[in-house]
Design a protein around this nucleic acid. Structure first.
Length: 592
RNA sequence: GGUCUCGUAGCUCAGUUGGAUAGAGCAGCUGACUUCUAAUCAGCAGGCCGCAGGUUCGAAUCCUGCCGGGAUCACCA
């Protein structure tokens, strides 16, 4: 299949050189799809050539249009409006395109590019359950990892589990003091919620003790429970057997809970890194950096890097007592990952409050001349706000991930009772379909927003099933299933050739152009680390299909040739929607 | 204060390497189910693209300044 876009660009360059004896750069050839109001498929902007031509835009358009029609078989007509050269591509080209993809169920999957990329996402602390902010992180990370796979990368999904530190010690101390030996089993609580309960208990107790200290006129920062937590942290670092045992079992409970949530969200990881294993890493790199004079040592023994020439200030990489900071650990972990997998690229999906941290980290890796330094990327995403403002754990406005999932599924259940057509399914199957619809609503709502932007999460809107939503796109796909199933049932074979004399409707051509673009859309989404590109694409394709469906009956088409053509169209639209939504982590139901 | 980032319809968001009269959805109003699923489709209404300059044949898009929101600038993670 000839790449029509590249072909037009080549011929435009050729045409300008032939007509006006001047070579132009490929980047000067702006090629857009033609706007709806005008006739044509692709539009060349001719303004950039007027200088070379020494003619007005209208004349240049006429010249170039004439040249293209004469020299490119696939272009059968043109018109020029105000400096825009609209080109009409021969229907035969689009029919041939449809034939070439109609049996490619994996349409949009690029061949391997030989590159290995690691995507880190989620990476929660282990002292409380996941919330809405994690959901954005997880969905972005998962979707990007799928997009990279579709773009031809070998992908390794990972997270760094923040399993040690003062936060988990707080939950531990509260459990010791108030737990009476309870477990998730004995209470029927999900593990992460169980541990989170003790984190809350810790904070309540700490607050109480602070108030008491303040009343006595003492330093309110030094509460007894805080001291106990710090004591636990020290014992943990000293490898105290009992403390380690408690730590392991509490983390174990949390992991069970997290895994249940990951399952519900449909994500998994290939490799887990635990902070308890990596928190001491990075010191070798600091030593080497000191030798190379990338770092410098202050009199107190602390080690720093001067990044002022990169507009980044001075940054500590090792404390005066020789212990690591977060940065040290990240330097070490990055190298560890490279050693483990020989990755070409590494993407960190982390909130935008850490933009500065990653700028510094990447700059350090460059100065240390790490072989993967140029493949590092921080996929920074904005915080999720509620219509009432920010989520604040102190004010109890944090939206819990598990509650949210339950809520959207309940809403999908209501919607299905009203509108659904699931009579033919068993209860079990119906539940599964409703789950897919609810999850589609939630996931699409989050992933359709450009990652770098802060977003407002309105729970009411997130469960909408109409308009620019996940279920809208699922509905288009379900309609397609309907026609294809009917075709199968009627024994209708539409594998034959498309009638060469068939005229394409405008909407049919629009759809073919759009599907033609899909593989490029995947590459662009990968290049920009941006799932929202795929989301808009799927929505627009579903919208076009719904219009097509409304305006043109498939089974009651006027001719057999039209019916066959439209069935082929339906099939490829179905694949493309399914493949696109899969890149967002969204599953398609059979019916709804 | 320094650095970074965002600002588009009442609300939530799109808007390709700068291209034609800035687009969707929701909310509001009007129409369309005897038909392959109306979770749909068609229409009306809604805009100083934060403000002011600049670059350009052409700016929501690039540059500068200002205004407004957010983040960050720890021997915290």
């Amino acid at each position: 299949m000839i790449d029509i876009i590249a072909l037009i660009q080549d011929k435009v360059m050729e045409g300008v050189e032939h007509l006006y004896q001047e070579k132009i750069d490929r980047s000067k050839v702006a090629l857009n799809t033609t706007r709806k109001e005008f006739e044509g498929d692709y539009t060349v902007v001719v303004f950039p050539f007027t200088k070379a031509a020494k003619k007005g835009p209208q004349q240049v358009g006429e010249d170039l249009g004439q040249f293209l029609v004469e020299n490119v078989d696939q272009i059968k007509a043109f018109n020029v409006i105000k400096g825009f050269l609209n080109l009409v591509v021969d229907d035969a080209y689009w029919k041939q395109f449809l034939e070439s993809v109609v049996n490619s169920e994996d349409y949009g999957q690029h061949p391997s590019n030989g590159k290995k990329i690691m995507v880190e996402f989620s990476s929660p602390n282990t002292n409380k359950p996941l919330h809405l902010g994690h959901i954005r992180n997880i969905l972005l990370g998962w979707s990007c990892s799928r997009i990279f796979e579709a773009a031809g990368y070998d992908v390794i999904r990972t997270q760094i589990v923040n399993d040690r530190g003062i936060h988990i010690c707080k939950s531990m101390v509260a459990w010791q003091q108030f737990g009476n030996g309870e477990t998730p089993e004995s209470t029927g609580l999900k593990g992460d919620h169980f541990v989170g309960k003790y984190y809350v208990a810790y904070n309540n107790e700490d607050k109480k003790q602070k108030a008491a200290l303040e009343a006595e006129g003492k330093d309110k920062e030094e509460t007894a429970i805080m001291k106990s937590a710090r004591d636990l942290l020290q014992k943990w670092e000293a490898n105290d057997e009992e403390v380690r045992k408690l730590w392991a079992s509490m983390n174990g409970w949390v992991y069970e809970g997290f895994n249940a949530t990951y399952d519900k969200l449909g994500v998994r990881f290939d490799k887990l890194y635990y902070e308890s294993d990596t928190y001491l890493l990075g010191k070798d790199a600091i030593d080497k950096g000191l030798e190379k004079e990338v770092f410098y040592k202050k009199e107190d023994g602390s080690v720093w890097i001067d990044l002022e020439d990169a507009k980044l200030d001075h940054k500590l990489v090792l404390r005066s007592d020789g212990t690591s900071v977060y940065m040290t650990q990240d330097i070490g972990t990055a190298s560890q990952r490279y050693d483990d997998y020989k990755i070409d690229e590494m993407v960190y999906v982390v909130g935008d409050e850490q933009n500065y941290h990653f700028k510094v980290l990447f700059e350090i890796m460059k100065r240390l001349e790490a072989p993967f330094a140029n493949g590092l990327y921080h996929l920074s995403y904005g915080m999720v706000d509620l219509p009432t403002g920010r989520m604040k754990s102190r004010e109890g406005t944090v939206v819990d991930a598990d509650d949210l999932v339950e809520e959207v599924i309940a809403e999908a259940h209501e919607g299905t009772k009203e509108r659904g057509d699931l009579g033919a399914f068993s209860e079990e199957e119906q539940k599964e379909i409703i789950r897919k619809i609810g999850m589609a609503a939630l996931k699409y709502f989050i992933v359709k927003v450009n990652p770098q932007k802060r977003m407002v999460f309105d729970p009411k809107e997130s469960v909408d099933l109409q308009g620019n939503t996940g279920p809208y796109i699922q509905y288009a796909s379900v309609r397609i299933n309907g026609v294809l199933q009917r075709a199968a049932k009627e024994g209708l074979d539409f594998s034959g050739a498309i009638d060469p004399s068939l005229n394409l409707e405008t909407i049919e051509k629009d759809i073919l152009l759009q599907i033609y673009e899909y593989p490029n859309v995947v590459l662009n989404a990968a290049k920009d680390y941006d799932p929202s590109v795929i989301a808009s694409y799927c929505y627009n394709l579903a919208k076009n299909f719904n219009k097509f469906w409304h305006d043109h009956s498939i089974f009651n088409a006027e001719t057999e040739a039209e019916k066959i053509f439209r069935l082929k169209m339906s099939k490829i639209i179905g694949y493309t929607l399914k493949n696109g939504m899969d890149l967002l982590g969204i599953e398609m139901p059979e019916r709804m």
